[in-house]
């Protein structure tokens, strides 16, 4: 703050409180709705404070789910989402670490060619080439499997690009020192480069975990078997019930459960998250 303007400070706080209200309100009301019995919600004027059905509603959702529509219990959806998000995050980090290492620390024929093949994928989100990618995955018999859910999403150059940028800032003297001490390329990677990249890996993990958890279109297409339903797409099946009002208390309880894990990651690792976000994009 440059000068003291009490009125402007007051306005600033007012605007920020308004912003927080807009941002938090939908989540708060979702939580409130998930703690009431269904009859409390159909009147149009929904309550603004939590009801007394928290335990019952969440028990119902987690344990049985909406059995009538043939859906699996929500704990299984949470499990599927977790596996998918972890596969995507860990797979992406592992693959891009070693490929960035190869690109930065080695000279070999076709290096530039490989570089461009990989970096061209920076431009093409999965959504754009969704139909042919689906055909490729189905011809590889990867429908309804965790491999099919995660491997096609692992292939993107953002993580490789980030690690490449980071490796380029690592001083050359480290390589020279390592070589004088008789360390080969694998030893250097394992004992020097990996420990140096620890913060970057953690920051990237936060971003990729959220990216994986929030996938929607891809799981929707390639899982026709209900047992692979992830939670984000599971909600869609609960909302679009034919010719009936959705069971909002169940839907909102599921929504809250779907938001909690990534929210916990964002809030718990806020500093890493902001770092990861700003660095992957720039």
């Amino acid at each position: 703050m440059v000068e003291n303007r009490p009125f402007f400070t007051f306005v600033a706080h007012f605007v920020l409180l308004l912003g927080v209200a807009i941002v938090v309100l939908p989540l708060w009301l979702a939580f409130v709705a998930s703690t009431h019995e269904p009859s409390a919600l159909i009147t149009g004027l929904m309550p603004l404070i939590p009801g007394d059905r928290l335990v019952e509603n969440y028990e119902l959702v987690l344990g049985e789910g909406v059995a009538a529509s043939g859906a699996i219990p929500v704990w299984k959806m949470l499990f599927n989402s977790l596996v998918m998000a972890l596969c995507i995050a860990i797979g992406k980090i592992a693959i891009s670490l070693i490929s960035a290492y190869a690109i930065v620390y080695f000279r070999f024929p076709f290096r530039t060619f490989c570089f461009w093949i990989i970096f061209i994928t920076l431009m093409l989100p999965v959504e754009v080439r969704i139909v042919p990618t689906f055909e490729v995955v189905s011809s590889l018999n990867m429908l309804n499997s965790f491999a099919g859910l995660s491997v096609p999403l692992i292939a993107s150059a953002t993580a490789t690009f980030l690690f490449r940028q980071f490796f380029l800032t690592v001083p050359d003297e480290l390589v020279e020192a390592a070589r004088i001490d008789g360390a080969g390329p694998w030893r250097f990677f394992q004992d020097i480069l990996l420990p140096l990249s620890r913060t970057n890996i953690a920051a990237l993990f936060v971003i990729l975990f959220i990216y994986g958890w929030n996938q929607y279109l891809w799981p929707l297409l390639i899982t026709t078997d209900q047992s692979f339903t992830t939670i984000v797409m599971g909600i869609q099946r609960m909302v679009t019930v034919a010719d009936a009002e959705p069971q909002w208390h169940v839907v909102m309880a599921t929504a809250v459960l779907a938001v909690l894990p990534p929210l916990a990651v964002v809030l718990g690792m806020q500093r890493l998250f902001v770092k990861g976000l700003v660095e992957t994009e720039k």
Binding site: V23, A258, L263
Partner: peptide, 15 residues
Amino acid sequence: LIWPYAVAPAIAGVL
């Protein structure tokens, strides 16, 4: 203010 980042687009729509 950073909460919505954690919310999937589909869930944001449903909310």
